[in-house]
C-alpha cells in the first residue's frame, strides 16, 4: 500500500506548509494563550472578588462560553462582528474585520473562559493565611494578588495551563471554517490541489502529534524545575 505513496508531494509542500501554515498556527496559539490567560485571570479575580455583581457577570460569561461549540463561535463571530462594529460605530457599512483578527479575538474570548476556571482553582489552592500575612505586612489587595497570590497560583497551575494550551494548539485548526491557511488548512489545500489526500492528512496528523507530544513531555520537565518547594 505504501508503494503508491508519493512522499515527494510532502517534500515539495514543506516550505508552504511550515512558513505559511505553521507560522500562522503558532502565532495564533501563542497570542490566544497569552490573551486568554490575561483575560481569564481577570475573570477569575472578578469571580473571587466578593463583589456579587462582578462575580455574577464573570460566571455568566464563563458558563455561556463553555456551553457553545468552539467551531460555532468562530463561525458566528466572523459573520457577526462586522455588523456589531457597524452598529457600535454607526458606520453605513459593516466594518471589515480580517479573518486573523476575528479568529484571534474568538480564541481569546473562548480560552479566557477555560483559563479563568484554571486560575480560579489555582487561586483557591492558596491557603487563606497567605493573603492574611500579606495584608498584615501592609500590602494592598492589588499588591497581595500581584506579588503573593498570583505567582503561587500561576506556578501551581502551570502544567494545567500548558496542557490547555496544547489543546488550544490543536483547536486552532478549526479556523478552516473561515478558509484560513493555518497548518491544517495549508495541508488541505495541497491535498486537494494534488489529489494526495492520504499523504497530506497523514503528514498533518504526524506533525500535530509530534509537537503536542514534545510539548507534553516538556511540561513534565518544566514542572519539576519550577515547582515551589513545600
Amino acid at each position: 500500500m505504501l508503494g503508491s505513496f508519493d512522499f515527494d508531494v510532502i517534500r515539495r509542500a514543506l516550505p508552504y506548509l511550515f512558513y505559511e501554515g505553521m507560522t500562522f498556527t503558532l502565532t495564533l496559539t501563542a497570542l490566544a494563550a497569552l490573551g486568554g490567560l490575561v483575560f481569564g485571570t481577570a475573570l477569575a479575580l472578578m469571580r473571587l472578588s466578593g463583589l456579587k455583581l462582578l462575580g455574577r457577570i464573570a460566571g455568566l460569561y464563563v458558563d455561556f462560553m463553555r456551553s457553545l461549540p468552539l467551531v460555532l463561535v468562530i463561525f458566528w463571530f466572523y459573520f457577526l462582528v462586522p455588523y456589531i462594529g457597524q452598529w457600535l460605530t454607526g458606520a453605513s457599512r459593516p466594518i471589515s474585520v480580517g479573518a486573523f483578527a476575528s479568529s484571534l479575538i474568538t480564541f481569546i474570548m473562548f480560552e479566557a473562559a477555560y483559563f479563568s476556571e484554571i486560575m480560579r482553582a489555582g487561586i483557591q489552592s492558596i491557603s487563606r493565611g497567605q493573603p492574611a500575612a500579606a495584608s498584615a505586612l501592609g500590602l494592598t489587595y492589588a499588591q497581595t494578588m500581584r506579588y503573593v497570590v498570583l505567582p503561587q497560583a500561576f506556578r501551581n497551575m502551570l502544567p494545567v495551563l500548558i496542557t490547555q494550551t496544547i489543546v488550544l494548539f490543536q483547536d486552532t485548526s478549526l479556523v478552516y471554517v473561515l478558509s484560513i491557511t493555518d497548518f491544517l488548512g495549508a495541508a488541505s489545500k495541497v491535498a486537494q490541489r494534488d489529489g494526495r489526500l492520504v499523504e497530506m492528512y497523514l503528514f498533518a496528523a504526524v506533525v500535530y502529534f509530534t509537537i503536542s507530544c514534545i510539548a507534553s513531555f516538556g511540561v513534565r520537565r518544566l514542572q519539576a524545575r519550577i515547582a515551589i518547594i513545600r
Binding site: S127, G129, Q130, A132, A133, A134, S135, A136, L137, G138, L139, T140, V148, P151, Q152, R155, I228, I229, R230
Partner: peptide
Amino acid sequence: PKLRSRVGMVFQHFELFPH
C-alpha cells in the same frame, strides 16, 4: 494597609511566602 504596615503580626503557621 498603612496602619497594618506599622503593626507586625506573627501567625501560627508562619505564612512565609513559599515562592
